[in-house]
Amino acid sequence: MDKEELKKIVYKLVEDSTGKKKLKQTDILKKVSADQGIEKDEVKAALRELVDAGTLIFTYFGGSFIEIPPKE
């Protein structure tokens, strides 16, 4: 699957969950790999690029989660 397309899917999943449920990295890997029929490692690589670019961030609230960074 095209990585840019995959990044958009991952971002949308996090965006749609905002305010409803905090997602752990493993939640994202399981959901996207199942929905798209691809390996978790492929999703992980896309997620990593999003985090490295600062598009998504890790947060800690009694556990580590992936979220959209707050607007400045």
Partner: peptide, 11 residues
């Protein structure tokens, strides 16, 4: 806790 760290790292 909260939103604090360096870019690319979650810990």
């Amino acid at each position: 806790g909260g939103i604090v760290g360096v870019r690319g790292y979650g810990g």
